[in-house]
């Protein structure tokens, strides 16, 4: 109902999108709209201009590349869920986003750039050692997921840049995803976890909704590689994360649940 008079720009190529990004550094990027429209209606956002990315075909690709898989930032959750090639962990996370109507619109890039600490897919990128490809008219650069989120709703992206894709390297190991919300759909995570573990070699334990940014637990990961027990790893996880009390849940709950999820996964592996 709230009226937004901001002009909308609809580039149809990546070049045009990047040129607009350069020209309008204060513009709001919109793809599926599932976050932006909520902010607008709540009066939390007064955009001066909108750059719509939904019409850029180059952003909606999923392909194999040297060094792994490339996910266009404009892929919707439904695209990923429906693709036989999508990584199972990414697909599982995409299935937990909202419900069908939201998955039909919400994009991978939107989830990443909205950078809510509770974003459902975000720990997955950490666990998979993904790189985010950022582009501007000056060129492209890759930022590891682990360095992308800089603080609450702050990212590594510069004003002229766009997130264009995600590169997921081919990684082996046991993997696990778990989202905890109060209901099974249309829920915002209280804790969301993605893990990957190659015994004695590599471990990634990544969480959302337990700190200002999606985060890994380096001490717990090291301990896991070194052969620590699941209970010991879980205890380190509980120490490393920094959840808060808010209207959805409590610090204490999030902390213990995060530890439990990791422990149950490792014990059952």
């Amino acid at each position: 109902m709230l009226r937004c008079e901001a002009p909308v720009h609809r580039p149809h190529s990546l070049e045009d999108a990047l040129a607009l990004r350069m020209e309008l550094p204060g513009a709001t990027m919109l793809a599926g709209g599932t976050d932006i429209m909520v902010y607008l209606e709540a009066g939390q956002l007064q955009p001066t201009a909108i750059i719509d990315l939904s019409g850029v075909p180059a952003l909606r690709v999923l392909r194999s590349v040297t060094g792994g898989q490339y996910y266009g930032a404009g892929l919707t959750c439904t695209d990923v869920v429906g693709s036989a090639h999508a990584h199972p962990l990414i697909r599982e996370a995409a299935l937990t986003v909202g419900a069908v109507q939201i998955q039909n619109r919400a994009t991978l890039g939107g989830n990443i750039c909205n950078s809510s600490p509770a974003g459902d897919t975000l720990p997955v990128w950490l666990a998979l050692n993904a790189d985010f490809e950022l582009a501007s008219i000056h060129g492209r650069r890759r930022v590891p997921a682990a360095r992308f989120w800089r603080g609450y709703k702050k990212t590594e992206m510069r004003p002229h840049e766009l997130l264009v894709g995600i590169i997921v390297p081919p990684l082996a190991g046991h993997m696990h995803f778990r989202k905890v919300g109060t209901r099974l759909a249309q829920s915002i995570a209280k804790v969301v976890f993605a893990g990957r573990y190659v015994p004695a070699v590599d471990a990634m334990l990544a969480f959302g909704a337990v700190g200002p940014v999606p985060m890994r637990c380096p001490e717990a990961e090291s301990a896991l590689i070194a052969g620590a027990s699941p209970a010991a790893v879980a205890a380190l996880v509980e120490k490393e994360i920094s959840p808060i009390d808010d209207v959805r849940s409590t610090q204490d709950y999030r902390r213990k649940v995060a530890g439990n999820i990791v422990r149950t996964w490792l014990e059952g592996r």
Binding site: E92, T96, H176, F177, L184
Partner: peptide
């Protein structure tokens, strides 16, 4: 049986 995002639980 359907619990999106839950593949293992006690």
């Amino acid at each position: 049986t359907v619990r999106p995002g839950v593949s293992r639980a006690r």
